[in-house]
Design a binder for these strands. Structure first.
Lengths: 193, 193
DNA sequence: GTCTATAAGATGATAGAC
DNA sequence: GTCTATCATCTTATAGAC
């Protein structure tokens, strides 16, 4: 399962999974150590504190997400198809073990987390707004998106709705809600609607 | 501030606030006891366990929300105005101390919470879907909402987007995002758009 | 109805051996 | 790089006094 992965990678993988499933306050160094198969002191060897661990996980998540969205940009030309593919990233994350967005979890736990982590969460949100906004702007130029749609505002709407959809999908065990939400929003801005 | 409130009420008030701000795992009976001004054993007198406490808070929240939305129905006739007023409930909750929806927090912490609490969360979501769906159905009859909008689907979209908007608004300290999201969605289904 | 006292276990973290 | 051993503190929860 994690045959070639280093201990360091397996720690980050499981920490990310725990935050996505239980939140920052929902797991301990011991849980992590047990899952990885080492002692909790070994976790401290790699990450001085829980805050440092959260920062490492968040920074990696942000980087991976940026790579994935950049790749979509290279492969898919039409804006509506890009939005659909973007929503599929969220849906896949959810179906891969009923996990919601890492940064949504950390944003929820904000009041019990150090500010440096929230800074990373905000940076992730800004990344997403930038990508979505540029996709919509291109869509208007292409003629695939209605020209009365405001890219920055729609980016906030699309992203918020997707994050909210993951939250309710998780509570209701209904991943189809993610498609339901994404498809409605894409339909509403389509030039041909 | 809480001059006439009973200890029981003050416990529920603060417990709700803590869950909304920090999540279910982000506060302890001690925090609660210190805030209310009693000992943690007194919290146990009213609520046998943390699960029971969460159930009491959630059940009261659901009841209060039902009363508030029923009242809106009596006072406001037009569907778009009702949707706007509904969104204002969320915005007010947020501005009253940067709090997000209680049930959104509990839904996020689902994997570390007993199923009975999640049942209440799901019931709350179902309440909201029912109310929103009926408002949109009436809006179509009134002619204030476009007749190609599907009430059940739009209820999921509107609610998900509002919940997601609160989450990002909280991370970014930007309550205006809640209006931004609500106004765009209402605009998109308006008959006169 | 609220308290003191206490239990048994979990928590993040550290020092030092191998 | 990973371990054992230990820490002070916090956790939910209970028994019984006032």
């Amino acid at each position: 399962m994690a045959g070639t992965a280093t201990t360091q990678e397996r720690i980050l993988d499981l920490a990310q999974q725990f935050i996505q499933e239980r939140g920052y306050n929902g797991f301990s160094f011991r849980d992590l150590a047990n899952g990885v198969g080492v002692k909790s002191s070994s976790i401290h060897y790699y990450h001085a504190s829980k805050t440092h661990l959260a920062l490492a996980v968040t920074s990696r998540y942000r980087k991976n997400f940026a790579a994935a969205t950049a790749q979509l940009r290279k492969e898919i030309p039409a804006a509506p198809d890009l939005l659909k593919a973007y929503a599929q990233i969220f849906k896949s994350t959810f179906e891969d073990g009923k996990k919601v967005c890492l940064c949504a979890m950390l944003a929820s736990d904000r009041d019990s987390i150090e500010e440096a982590v929230t800074d990373q969460v905000r940076a992730f949100f800004a990344d997403q707004y930038g990508w979505l906004s540029s996709v919509v702007t291109d869509g208007i130029s292409q003629g695939t998106v209605r020209d009365n749609v405001r890219p920055d505002d729609f980016a906030v709407l699309f992203f918020s709705a997707l994050e909210g959809a993951m939250m309710v999908a998780n509570a209701n065990d209904r991943s189809a809600d993610i498609d339901l939400v994404a498809d409605q929003m894409i339909g509403l801005v389509l030039q041909t609607a």
